[in-house]
Design a protein around this nucleic acid. Structure first.
Lengths: 240, 240
DNA sequence: TACAAATATGTACTAGAAACACATTAACCT
DNA sequence: AGGTTAATGTGTTTCTAGTACATATTTGTA
């Protein structure tokens, strides 16, 4: 089978390179899973179990299996590690530097996902797995800091234009809560009045006719995500 | 070496899967190389030499070598096929559907590049290699139509904000020529006056103080790309 | 009952995009 | 040589989206 692949790519020089050379590259997926708590954006990390990176954290990743799509692999990792299925995942970029994995050649594709850190179905599968505030992430194993940064960059680019953010929030939320999430992601303060105007133009929200409870001040209205968009957020779509 | 990689990714289930399974995925790079001629955007295609796709065209691609970066592989392909070095290349997306290659499992990363189709150093390395108008591209081999579309989408998104387009043009060009390239890429007509205003605000251009020659009407001023930006276009940078 | 703190809504200003008009220059034709 | 044609080159006006900013309202608390 793999001989067929090499023949299928017959440039002049491939002849010289043996089968084993080409099939000595592994393919992996790394997931940047972001949550939100205490007005902070957090990322799901695990202690690296490689000697080379002892003491360092790394992203959640795994080798892609021969029988699964790249996208499927990222959903599998999310499911295995968090118990959650049907959460929005988006491919961001592929990292293929030669020396990026100390044990050999691994090309990895980065995906990011946003999810409600307090979701009742969320079960972290491993003791060393933990939520880490983005602002306190230092050195990570491999090139995972680069991967994290590229996902954050993509997220910041798109978050105001696309309704990605709602998987970070509970079903019902107030406009203040929504704004706080945006501020945590973008790292800036937003004008409350302009923010509300901008959101209201987008028809992302449905007014629930309910109010906040247990807040030590005037309660705000509660909203939920427009159900039409909710479907799209859950769909396993490659979004270009 | 590769045993080490599998150990480095020790999820519960990896144990069951053998070394050969994991190292049966190949990694390739496909390049969407775009040029411009006769008011048309064109893409560099080659006749597929796989039986399964006989008669169909495909993008330029090759397996990634064990000793080269992913980015390097794309530059190598560009160099081997066109003779050109130091042309802007940008990673777009990675495609990893299981059935995408009939000979086996190949995960491919798409890059796009823009270049002047009349560049004097341009030498197409193969007889079947040819420029194909974007508007007339039909079915392509593999999932190359999807890859082409995703690159075009990215290009259209970015072309107005970033000075990508200038590698499609000769050294000296008029504002009309520049506008025509934009129109070919975006597939729309642009207002000449607004277009000129927009471009002039960006300090992308330097007025050469020269005029067009050999045009059957009033000649326009000639411009070149601001040299400061030119460096950036040639740099082999991963742009996120 | 007054005060503090947050919600809710609205207005004025500004910058950028879109729509639109006219004078100028060079080649071509008679 | 002079008029015609077809492009270049430079505005102006209008609209829209974004930013800055103010005031009234509602609830909890002292």
């Amino acid at each position: 089978m793999s001989e067929r692949i090499i023949k299928a790519f017959k440039t002049a020089e491939t002849e010289k390179i043996s089968h084993l050379d080409y099939f000595n590259i592994a393919v992996s997926v790394d997931c940047v899973i972001l949550g939100y708590e205490n007005k902070q954006l957090k990322v799901l990390l695990i202690k690296s179990d490689l000697e080379e990176f002892s003491g360092l954290n790394s992203l959640l990743g795994d080798l892609v299996r021969p029988d699964e799509d790249l996208d499927e692999a990222s959903y599998r990792i999310l499911r295995e590690r968090t118990g959650l299925n049907d959460v929005y995942l988006e491919q961001v970029q592929t990292f293929g530097r030669i020396g990026r994995h100390p044990s050999g050649r691994v090309v990895t594709t980065a995906y990011f996902s946003l999810l409600d850190l307090h979701h009742h179905q969320l079960r972290l599968s491993h003791n060393d797995l933990h939520w880490h505030p983005i602002s306190k992430v230092g050195k990570l194993a491999f090139d995972h800091k680069d991967i994290l940064d590229s996902c954050l960059h993509r997220l910041r680019q798109q978050v105001l234009e696309r309704p990605l953010i709602f998987s970070l929030l509970p079903e019902k939320f107030s406009l203040r809560q929504l704004q706080e999430v945006y501020e945590a992601i973008l790292g800036t303060e937003l004008d409350r009045r302009n923010f509300r105007k901008k959101v209201s133009l987008k028809d992302w929200l449905v007014d629930l006719g309910e109010m906040e409870t247990d807040v030590p001040h005037r309660p705000g209205k509660l909203y939920k995500l427009n159900p039409a968009l909710k479907k799209r957020l859950r769909a396993r779509l490659r979004v270009s």
